[in-house]
């Protein structure tokens, strides 16, 4: 598994794409520094909550995970290198799991670190606030990794599919339709922030509790990882 994790991480971290992802991940830090330097009416918590909800959880995290997780199998489908992995005496699960971990390491971790650091800067070193942000972003990253890795292997146009998911399902439908909130990674992420640190996101609509957020994310990971594994076992390998 470590061999495949190293291969997948190298694959995702290579090329120009990773620099674009790192720039995206660094945007919250820029906002945090601006907040620290410029006088504003907003309190530190208000600003940090806004940054977490409206920028990191709803845009940066899903976009970074979309680009990286769809590429984790998408690259191999495009350049016909997938046979190097599937023609081996290893279970399909041991191919899928390192792919998930690699996109988490290369994409989710930098976003979580950026969220942690920007919260620290904004709240002048409040470790509790920062830890809640980082932990929630990691939970969201795992769920996105599972969803978008599946999409990269299964959906023909995975990137447009992912963009539609992020900006239609997550941003619009899950905000206005009650039932869909239980199927929204953004809602799971916000639920974990608020669940760990109840002083966070008080003025914002967080529909789910900590347990619901964690269970929702776990179910999503389990379902989409199973679907990806099944797909890998049954598909025609190009």
């Amino acid at each position: 598994m470590m061999v495949l994790l190293a291969l997948s991480a190298r694959q995702l971290a290579g090329g120009k794409r990773i620099w674009l992802m790192l720039v995206l991940a660094a945007i919250p830090l820029v906002f945090a520094v601006i907040f620290a330097l410029v006088e504003t009416d907003a309190t530190a918590l208000e600003f940090s909550d806004g940054l977490t909800n409206y920028l990191i959880a709803s845009t940066i995290l899903p976009l970074v995970m979309l680009v990286l997780a769809t590429a984790s199998f998408g690259n191999e489908l495009d350049d016909h290198t997938l046979p190097y992995l599937v023609l081996k005496p290893i279970s399909r699960w041991t191919i899928v799991a390192p792919k998930l971990l690699a996109s988490l390491l290369v994409g989710g971790l930098p976003v979580a670190v950026s969220g942690w650091l920007s919260t620290l800067i904004i709240t002048e070193g409040d470790a509790g606030h920062a830890a809640a942000t980082a932990a929630a972003l990691l939970v969201g990253a795992v769920a996105y990794a599972a969803l978008f890795t599946w999409a990269g292997l299964t959906v023909r146009y995975a990137l447009p599919f992912g963009v539609a998911y992020i900006f239609v399902w997550e941003a619009v439908l899950s905000t206005f339709l009650d039932g869909t909130r239980f199927l929204s990674v953004r809602q799971y992420t916000l639920a974990v922030v608020h669940g760990i640190d109840d002083s966070r996101l008080r003025d914002m609509v967080v529909e789910l509790g900590l347990a619901e957020g964690l269970i929702g994310a776990a179910v999503m990971v389990a379902v989409f990882t199973t679907l990806t594994t099944r797909r890998l076992a049954r598909m025609d390998i190009p």
């Binding site: 061999v3 290198t81 046979p83």
Partner: peptide, 29 residues
């Protein structure tokens, strides 16, 4: 999958992981 410990397949596509060295590709396999 267990059967692949006894089979070697070289596909028609000449694709390789270009960022690996030749030795790394063989070692990966």
């Amino acid at each position: 999958p267990a059967i692949f410990s006894r089979i070697g397949v070289m596909t028609e596509h000449e694709s390789v992981y270009e960022f690996l060295t030749g030795r790394e590709l063989v070692e990966l396999n």
